[in-house]
C-alpha cells in the first residue's frame, strides 16, 4: 500500500477477550480506501468480533482502531454496519421502509424525527437493492434473502464511507446474492470501502480484490492475487481446508 495514503481502517495491536481467553490476539490490519476486502477464517476465528471492534462496539483489552486516521468514536457517521440477519428479532411491528429509514437516524440527531427527505433517501436505497415493491410489507413477512437486502438498504441510506458487512451471503437465495454483489460493485465504483466477513472461499476471488485471512491473529492480508494462496489457507484453516483450498488455490 502507498505509504502516503491514509488507510480507511487501521487496526493496531488489537487484543479482544471475552471471559478470559483472547478472541483476537495482537492484531494488525490495514484496509485501503476504496478496496473490497473479504475477511476469511474458520468458525471462532474472531471475524465478527473484529468487525464489532472496528465499529467500537467492543472495548478491546489492548490496541487501537483508527478510521481514516482518527479514533473510531469521532467518525461514527462514516461507517455503516450490516449485522448478521439471524441476530435480529424479525417479529417486530414495522414495515420495510421504516427499517431502511433507520439508516438516516445517525445524521438526524436527538429528538428530530425522520421527515420526507429521510423517506426519500430510504426509498432510493430500496430502489438500489431492488426492493421498492416491498416498502410497505411488514418485516415479519420477509424471506431470509429479503431480510438481508433491507439490512443492506438500511446501510446504504447511511451514505457512509466504509461498509462493514457480517456474512451477508449466509443462506440467501441466488437473486439476493446477485443483488448484493451488484450493490458492492456500485459502492466500489463510488470509491467506498467495503469489508465483508465471508464464508464461501470459492467466490472470494470473484467478489473481492483484497483478503484478510484471520484465525485469532491475522495470518495474511493483502491483494487476493498474492494472498489468497493454498499455503495461506492451510495456515488459516489448519488441515480442515481440504478440497476447498485446492480449488481456491487454483483460482
Amino acid at each position: 500500500m502507498d505509504a502516503a495514503v491514509v488507510p480507511a481502517v487501521e487496526v493496531e495491536d488489537l487484543t479482544v477477550a471475552y471471559t478470559g481467553s483472547p478472541v483476537l490476539w495482537d492484531l494488525d490490519l490495514q484496509i485501503g480506501p476504496g478496496t473490497r476486502t473479504a475477511i476469511v477464517g474458520p468458525n471462532g476465528a474472531g471475524k465478527s468480533t473484529l468487525i464489532k471492534a472496528v465499529m467500537g462496539l467492543i472495548e478491546p483489552v489492548a490496541g487501537a482502531v483508527r478510521i481514516f486516521g482518527k479514533p473510531g468514536r469521532e467518525v461514527r457517521g462514516s461507517i455503516a454496519y450490516v449485522p448478521q440477519r439471524a441476530t435480529l428479532e424479525w417479529d417486530f411491528p414495522t414495515d420495510v421502509l421504516d427499517v431502511v429509514t433507520m439508516g438516516t437516524y445517525g445524521r438526524l440527531g436527538w429528538f428530530r424525527r425522520p421527515g420526507p427527505s429521510e423517506r426519500a433517501i430510504a426509498e432510493a436505497a430500496l430502489e438500489q437493492i431492488e426492493m421498492s415493491s416491498f416498502a410497505h410489507r411488514p418485516i415479519a413477512q420477509l424471506s431470509g434473502g429479503q431480510q438481508q437486502r433491507i439490512l443492506l438498504a438500511r446501510a446504504l441510506a447511511q451514505d457512509a464511507e466504509i461498509y462493514l458487512l457480517d456474512e451477508p451471503f449466509q443462506g440467501v437465495d441466488a437473486p439476493t446474492e446477485r443483488a448484493i454483489v451488484r450493490v458492492l460493485d456500485d459502492l466500489a465504483t463510488a470509491g467506498r470501502t467495503v469489508v465483508v466477513v465471508h464464508h464461501d472461499l470459492q467466490t472470494v476471488a470473484e467478489y473481492f480484490n483484497h483478503v484478510a485471512l484471520l484465525n485469532v491473529r491475522i495470518i495474511a492480508a493483502g491483494p487476493v492475487a498474492t494472498t489468497f494462496t493454498e499455503e495461506n489457507l492451510r495456515l488459516t484453516f489448519g488441515g480442515r481446508v481440504g478440497v476447498l483450498a485446492a480449488r481456491a488455490g487454483s483460482v
Binding site: G56, R76, G77, I79, E89, M102, P114, R154
Partner: peptide
C-alpha cells in the same frame, strides 16, 4: 426513533 432502534437492533444504533 432511538427507542425503536434500541428495541429492534441495538448494536446498529450503537454503530451510528
Amino acid at each position: 426513533k432511538e427507542m425503536k432502534v434500541l428495541t429492534f437492533d441495538r448494536a446498529y444504533g450503537e454503530s451510528m
